[in-house]
Amino acid sequence: MSVEAVSWALNDAPDVPPSCLAVLIGLANHAHANGRAAYPSQERLAHYARKSTRSIRSDLATLERLGIIRRGDQRHVSHLPTDRRPVVWDLAMERRRTVPDSLDSFAEPQSGRPTEVPEPVDNRPEARFPPVPTDRKRAPKRPEADFRSGRKQTSTEPSLNHQEPSPRARSLRGGAALPTDPRAGHCSRHRGSPAHNCGPCWAERLGGAA
């Protein structure tokens, strides 16, 4: 395949009948860069142009009569059987038509080069220089509920509002009370007996009353 020959057939080949354009492009597809030594079979050209081989023979004759193609060096197909040798054609690439100014390569977008719309540029200072993030003191996280067990997570840090329970509260919970003065709340006469409910004192009172 020759890009130069195909480009010539599409853009520069003069006096090409519209009905013969597909056959000319098919020949250019098999030619060298200089447009020579194109010898596809008539069946191949019929496949390209979606025509019958009879119509292909007619188109080749028309292109040859108009001087758009000519017979080339037939030795290129000498290695093929005699009954299967196609005709070798050369394209008249020296002939060119004038391209209108409106179809200049710079006047319209070319294939493979899509026209891209540039993105708008933000010229604001804050857009060019984004603010630098500052380190802020993070607030302590609140205890989050443990959804699987239904319990709240407790913090491992000691609480500043912690208060020790009173001796009475600790005794009610079964804990050991803080040591107290052994004489506080005892009977002054009978050691070991409570002052408000001293057994020996009650016995003495009852005896005196009797």
Score class of each variant (00 low, 15 high):
Pro18Lys: 15
His76Phe: 12
Tyr39Ile: 04
Ile25Asn: 01
Arg70Thr: 14
Ala31Asp: 01
Ile68Phe: 05
Tyr39Ala: 04
Arg57Tyr: 05
Ala38Gly: 07
Glu94Asn: 15
Ala37His: 06
Glu94Lys: 13
Glu43Arg: 06
Ser41Glu: 05
Cys20His: 11
Leu24Trp: 02
Asp83Glu: 14
Gly26Glu: 01
Ala37Met: 02
Gly26Thr: 02
Lys51Pro: 02
Ser52His: 14
Pro86Gln: 09
Ile68Gly: 03
Arg50Ile: 00
Asn34Tyr: 04
His79Glu: 04
Arg75Phe: 09
Ala61Trp: 06
Gln74Glu: 14
Arg70Gly: 15
His47Cys: 03
Asp59Lys: 09
Arg50Val: 00
Thr82Met: 15
Trp89Leu: 09
Asp15His: 13
Ala49Ser: 09
Ala28Tyr: 00
Pro40Ile: 00
Asp90Lys: 15
Ala38His: 05
Ala61Asp: 12
Ala33Ser: 07
Ser58Lys: 08
Leu45Phe: 01
Leu91Thr: 10
His47Glu: 03
Val23Asn: 00
Pro17Asn: 10
Val23Ser: 02
Glu43His: 07
Arg50Leu: 00
Thr53Arg: 15
Leu63Cys: 08
Leu91Pro: 11
Ala49Gln: 09
Thr82Asp: 15
Leu66His: 08
Ser58Cys: 06
Asp90Ser: 14
Gly35Asp: 03
Asp73Ser: 12
Asn29Gly: 07
His32Ala: 05
Arg84Ile: 05
Tyr48Arg: 11
Ala28Thr: 01
Asp59His: 13
Leu80Gly: 07
Ser78Arg: 13
His32Val: 01
Ser52Gln: 15
Pro17Leu: 06
His32Arg: 11
Ser52Arg: 14
Gln42Arg: 15
Val77Ala: 03
Arg54Tyr: 15
Leu60Asp: 02
His79Lys: 11
Thr62Tyr: 00
Ser19Lys: 10
Arg44Gln: 06
Arg36Met: 03
Ser19Asp: 13
Ala92Glu: 13
Ser41Thr: 13
Ser19Met: 09
Val23Gly: 00
Asn29Ile: 00
Leu21Asn: 05
Pro17Ala: 11
Leu80Asp: 03
Gly67Pro: 07
Arg85Glu: 08
Ala28Ser: 06
Ile69Arg: 04
Pro81Leu: 08
His76Cys: 12
Thr53Cys: 11
Asp90Cys: 13
Asp73Glu: 11
Tyr48Ile: 07
Arg75Tyr: 07
Ala46His: 02
Leu66Trp: 03
Arg85Pro: 12
Leu91Met: 14
Ala33Thr: 10
Gln74Ser: 12
Asn34Ile: 03
Ala46Glu: 01
Arg50Pro: 00
His47Asp: 04
Arg50Cys: 01
Leu21Gly: 04
Arg54Glu: 12
Pro86Lys: 09
Gln42Thr: 08
Ser19Trp: 12
Thr82Lys: 15
Ala49Leu: 02
Pro18Asn: 13
Arg84Glu: 11
Pro86Thr: 05
